[in-house]
Design a protein around this nucleic acid. Structure first.
Ligand code: FES
Ligand code: FES
Lengths: 146, 146
DNA sequence: CTTATAAAAGATATTTTTATCTTTTATAAG
DNA sequence: CTTATAAAAGATAAAAATATCTTTTATAAG
């Protein structure tokens, strides 16, 4: 569904948010290890997310990454996906035609846009904050490694 | 959503089915041109689809690819996708964890499986035959190039 | 049997994605 | 000011996906 880069990115943001909520800044090394992602590559992705103002970073000793809780309420999964994977998943044709166009639909258009819309809507209505909150109770673990 | 190979494959199967229904066998060259796909690469994909018994091929003069109408009723999009892209799209975790497991769910599990299931179900309930039939009338064009 | 045609199979090349390594910049603390 | 730390930036490298080219096999027709 998503590229590896995007998966690493989403896992990283969730982990950073969790750590910030616990009062910790966290390093590339720690993020990569906690999310089971390659370290240097994760660094590149964090760079991109920082440039795009999803997370914040602080250089130097006692530095690291963080994202304030208030901000987690405004960051939607759709933003992370779009920054890393672009908007193909929201606008692209299921058969890979250059443009998806209801006026000139491909054979799977009607069925495909239902799915595509649900996905878009799910990503747009899910904030990082939502993911930190347990849905079933207080102690659901944030599972990011396996 | 799908790999380019998979997109080419779906477009090719739809085109072959359409041509068969018109009484024509069709060549790699014609399929590639009609679906706007790279010729040699499309040949490879057609090979794979033939081996997996999705379409039939005939070598030599007056040869080409075909898929009988009766068969189009039994071939689901899900089969084409699985042959080319594997089952990651049906079973994989949205965050890319090694396994998606409801007993040990990742933070987006609940929301993600809804989408994944709808997609799976859509692909499993859509046959190649369905795609050849107009949904709004008799003369909806099969759009495979753009 | 020979020739022409078209797919199958195999080998190679290109591009994109993923991953790593090195150098630079910022900054906290002594 | 110097040192240590950690991210940013830039340069390479490796792997996977996409694409092409060449050789082989099957077969229809003369
Ligand atoms: S035209 Fe193909 S999905 Fe809309
Ligand atoms: S565990 Fe991640 S989607 Fe199921």
């Amino acid at each position: 569904m998503f590229s590896k880069s995007c998966e690493y990115g989403m896992r990283a943001v969730i982990y950073v948010a969790k750590q910030t909520s616990l009062g910790n800044k966290t390093s590339v090394k720690e993020i990569a290890s906690a999310t089971n992602s390659p370290e240097a590559f994760t660094g590149k992705i964090l760079q991109k997310l920082t440039k795009n103002n999803i997370i914040d970073s602080i250089k130097g000793p006692y530095g690291g990454f963080l994202i304030y809780e208030e901000k987690t309420k405004t960051i939607k999964l759709s933003q992370i996906v779009e920054i890393i994977d672009g908007d193909k998943i929201y606008t692209g044709c299921g058969l890979g035609l250059k443009e998806c166009n209801a006026k000139n639909p491909c054979p799977i258009h009607d069925k495909f846009i239902d799915i595509r819309s649900s996905l878009k809507s799910m990503l747009e209505t899910t904030t990082v904050y939502d993911l930190l909150k347990s849905e079933t109770g207080e102690d659901k673990i944030l599972q990011l490694k396996r």
